[in-house]
């Protein structure tokens, strides 16, 4: 590393901070970039800055949106079921649910989960925003879709209590066996949940 010019070393260090980029990939990317035609690098830099400047969380649901489109495309879409809201931890979780293609309600991103060990309290989450939405939107059901670790479970039960009000149904997505796999691959905890959440066959 000592032989690399300072700007390259600096670029490597900056790239290595990105998620999924280790020191080796950072080095490869940096060496590629400094040898690329400068117009292309200029374009990349501008794309980065522009994307960062224009992307905001939607003030309503918390999904990432273009600052010129407020509220976001998901909130504005009249074909989506406005009575149903799916509650998620992070904006990227929306993409996972959208990929399934079976959900047509709206979303609300919490921005985390209650985690005393990381200093995240309920006030740090977008719960008040959701309560505001409950006052103005015709919501009749909230689907909680948080992770199933200790914090996810605790946050879900916290929300179920805090959001409870007459005429509002609060549900949590089922957790159980992964599709297409046999029982022998499931751990005990998953099986316990799957058994507890069993359903009568139609």
């Amino acid at each position: 590393m000592a032989t690399l010019p300072e700007p390259i070393a600096n670029l490597i260090a900056t790239l290595a901070k990105l998620p999924g980029i280790g020191p080796r990939s950072a080095e490869r990317l940096a060496l590629h970039l400094v040898q690329t035609e400068s117009g292309a690098v200029q374009q990349l830099a501008e794309a980065l800055v522009r994307a960062r400047e224009r992307i905001r969380p939607c003030p309503t649901c918390g999904a990432l949106t273009d600052s010129e489109q407020v509220p976001c495309a998901l909130c504005a879409d009249p074909r989506r079921d406005a009575t149903l809201v799916c509650l998620l931890e992070r904006p990227v979780d929306i993409i996972s649910i959208e990929k399934s293609g079976t959900y047509h309600g709206k979303y609300h991103v919490l921005g985390g989960k209650i985690s005393p060990l990381n200093g995240v309290e309920p006030e740090d989450l977008r719960i008040a925003e959701l309560e505001e939405r409950l006052k103005h939107e015709p919501i009749t059901e909230i689907v909680i879709a948080l992770g199933t670790d200790v914090e996810g479970d605790a946050t879900s039960s916290y929300l179920a209590k805090r959001l409870a009000r007459p005429g509002l149904k609060i549900t949590r997505i089922a957790h159980g066996l992964p599709a297409g796999s046999g029982l022998e691959f499931a751990d005990e905890l998953t099986l316990t949940h799957a058994l507890a959440g069993r359903r009568e066959m139609d």
Partner: peptide, 9 residues
């Protein structure tokens, strides 16, 4: 309320 939810866990 947060304490209650972790108590439940």
């Amino acid at each position: 309320a947060a304490l209650d939810s972790f108590s439940a866990e």
